[in-house]
Amino acid sequence: MEKKLYTVTVFSENQVGLLNQITIIFTRRSINIETLSVSPSALPGIHKFTITCYTDKDMIVKVVKQIDKRIDVLKSYYNVDEELVHQEIALYKISSKKILARGIMEDLIRKHNMQVLELNEHYVVFQKTGHHAETQALFDELQTSTGVLQFIRSGRVAITKSKIERLSDMLAYMEEKQKQQSK
């Protein structure tokens, strides 16, 4: 089966050790995690994990079900790129001397729509947001023209295009369950 990039989204309770519980499920199936981003979600006390990995459909379905099975995981699902609005952010540290000597600053800013975060006599720091290919294109260009002193790219963050809000639906369903049970 064809391998492609999947984005797994996990909503969990804020419990110690959740990240380990999730990553070992990838480890057991020998799936490399490409990017990982963890942060509090919009709902208080609920954490959101965004994980990307290359695998096939059959496998990602199994992995997501196994993540979902962990007690403190509220909801886990997967998407392909077409179903998401997604973004990464990258920072680039370049020697000021080299970039000024080449006089390419304006060109770069116009072409890559990047920002300058810091500028001093030693170095300049650029920031670029975009898809992986876009941040990579800027890196490649800087690497060949001036060299890059430091480079860092964040994990992917993503929002679904769908009209269905799966976490809210799940929470509403569970709330209903609790009401039924306490009756």
Binding site: S12, I71, D72, L74, M174, E175, K177, Q178
Partner: peptide, 8 residues
């Protein structure tokens, strides 16, 4: 305990 909202 008879209910955990993240566990069905």
């Amino acid at each position: 305990c008879n209910f955990i909202r993240s566990y069905l």
